[in-house]
Amino acid sequence: MQQVINALMLGSMYALIALGYTMIYGIIRFINFAHGDVFMVGAYIVFNVVTIFKFGFWGALLCAVLGTMLLGVVIERVAYKPLRNAPKISLLITAIGVSLFLENFVALPVVMGSMPKVVPSFIPISIYSLGNVKFSSAQVIILVTAVALMIFLGWFIRSTKLGRAMRAVSSDYAAVPLMGINVDNIISMAFAIGSALAGVGGLLYVIVYPEVDPFMGIMLGTKAFIAAVVGGIGNIYGAVAGAYLIAFLEVAMVAAGYSMWRDAAAFGLLIIVLLIKPSGLFGKFEKEKV
């Protein structure tokens, strides 16, 4: 049971990051490899406002969201937008460049340094127990925040004007401008929302694992990314389902004593899913036109 809680925590983290991957892929068919590093920057923002300004949960949340949102939009405008009509692979290489830049810039001694830093506790934590199971208020906060955000995003995509516009860009990129929708703004918006979710992911991460380091985004980002693919990239419900699936698999591997193999299990699941159903568990199959 304790393991289930662990898996839910990990899954929530993956889900928040996976949503960013999947939104951006859904709209411009582009794997944003720098997304995991936006998450890392979010965690660092929390670290700084918590140690310097002694902010609490809400202050940290606001700063992380605004900071990563701004970062996401700036990255998109500066590095990705000029390549909108270039080959997809150039865009991917630029994303790798952005990722390298963020990691190593944060790791500069004059910025944050490459050593991991411990984040002080900034929310009051109390432990509850329900029968045999112990859980902390932090875990409740994480689960509630993550689920609330997922529900909000689902509603946003489904019911708001902007969400509809995003779905429109996703289903037919070329026809959308003809309907008088500004595609650039929609794409920036997707980056803003995706990055903000990664920022929240960073906040939640430092609550459970109170340590930050400049390269923390690589593995977590990659896992979140494969979660998005397993669920069916481009589909937000799929991303959430894939995230919890990967998290449960990993925690099960660790609980079974195969912690060395947990990454292999996650990636193996990805390959199996891709081979059986290349568009992911919940993905739409795009028929090839001759």
Binding site: I31, I226, D263, L274, L275
Partner: peptide, 27 residues
């Protein structure tokens, strides 16, 4: 098996294979 996949999906599958290779060597 993997070359049946196309484009981004092939890239992702090969990326995953790479990580599995690393884990296998580690063991």
């Amino acid at each position: 098996p993997t070359l049946r996949l196309k484009g981004d999906y092939l890239g992702i599958a090969t990326l995953a294979l790479d990580q599995i290779f690393v884990v296998v060597i580690q063991n």
